[in-house]
């Protein structure tokens, strides 16, 4: 996982009341969300029916980021806080840094799929913490940069310290879904639930401290991206120093089957009054609709989640059509989805 500005860990560790964790969990929701547009953009750039492993791996990671976002919102609700999702501050500017000073200045953009993006951006985002498990963190000993894993551990530690066993939030605000296994997405009523849920986020992101697998025996995000970068499946290998090696089957990649998205396409780049502008506006309207639906889902209407799944398909279909559309005035490029919070989609 990525390095993070340690002030956020410090904030967590110096919290004296649960309320002081609310803004940190809000940031966690924002962080989990912020990785989704770059991953989706790369996935939508893969031409339909091609580069299937790339699509499948990115898709599996996006689904887990959505899970993590939901878990973070559930924890915030469980502690009595209020997730805030349908506002312009929630949406990052791409290209730009991720929330919480993540990555020591790593700039994340919305680009087509390439080995370079996988290596230089996605694997950077998901890079595991190499240090051993921190049983208890001491502010004085914090390095200049810490990791997201440590950030979540700090929150975990403070929940353990400050929260009552029975958490104070509205129990009927907890979001669950038939699309996630109950052992991954479960209602957070108690302190132990919250601690378990945070472990899921950490492990799916970076694996356990001793294995690239999480507790569901799936490869952590970093290693799934590394498979794509290396073009090889990662397999158990007793002869390898860490017990695993990229000795599995090849993962074929055909660069010609990637749409040449113009990097970080913006609505403002599209000609006024054009068909492509309408389609981009439609995309961003779906994006806003999705955030709005999720906001309602996480603020007391948990069953609304089903409706947002339909919006995700609207968003995906519009995005994939955009990716196939030549960019007016930019020869050799097609149009990327801009994931902008636009004024036209307000209300």
């Amino acid at each position: 996982m990525l390095k993070i500005d340690p002030k956020y860990i410090e904030k967590a560790l110096t919290a004296n009341v649960l309320e002081e964790l609310y803004p940190l969990l809000q940031k966690a929701i924002e962080l989990e969300h912020s990785t989704i547009p770059p991953y989706l953009t790369a996935m939508f750039s893969l031409k339909p029916g091609t580069n299937l492993v790339q699509r499948q791996i990115i898709h599996s990671i996006v689904i887990e980021e959505m899970l993590h976002m939901t878990i973070a919102a559930n924890i915030l609700n469980a502690l009595g806080g209020t997730p805030d999702i349908n506002n312009s501050q929630f949406v990052p500017e791409y290209p730009g840094p991720l929330p919480m000073g993540i990555g020591n200045g790593l700039i994340v953009g919305l680009e087509k799929y390439s080995q370079g993006v996988v290596k230089n951006v996605f694997m950077e985002i998901e890079e595991p913490e190499n240090a051993i498990v921190f049983k208890s963190l001491d502010i004085k000993k914090l390095p200049t940069f810490s990791t997201i894993g440590q950030f979540y551990q700090a929150i975990q530690q403070k929940i353990d310290e400050l929260a009552p066993n029975d958490l104070p939030g509205h129990k009927d605000y907890q979001v669950t879904s038939a699309f996630f296994p109950a052992q991954e997405l479960f209602p957070i009523y108690t302190k132990q639930h919250a601690i378990d849920a945070i472990n899921i986020i950490i492990e799916q992101g970076e694996g356990t401290s001793t294995s690239p697998l999480d507790q569901q025996d799936e490869l952590a995000h970093y290693y799934r991206f590394e498979e794509l970068y290396k073009g090889k499946r990662l397999l158990k290998d007793p002869s390898a120093p860490k017990g695993y090696s990229f000795s599995g089957p090849d993962i074929p990649f055909t660069p010609d089957d990637v749409y040449p998205l113009f990097p970080n396409t913006k609505t403002s780049m599209l000609p006024a009054g054009s068909e492509v502008l309408n389609r981009m506006n439609q995309f961003n309207a779906s994006y806003y609709s999705l955030l709005s639906g999720l906001h309602d889902t996480f603020n007391g209407q948990p069953t609304w989640l089903d409706n947002t799944i339909g919006v995700m398909y609207d968003l995906k279909l519009t995005a994939e059509k955009l990716c196939a559309t030549p960019f007016p005035g930019k020869a050799g490029y097609t149009i990327g989805p801009s994931f902008e919070f636009t004024a036209t989609s307000k209300c």
Binding site: Y288, G293, L294, N307, V311, Y313, D314, C347
Partner: peptide, 11 residues
């Protein structure tokens, strides 16, 4: 004022 379609669910 603007007249708009659904929000938070598909169109």
């Amino acid at each position: 004022q603007a007249i708009q379609g659904a929000e938070g669910r598909p169109t």
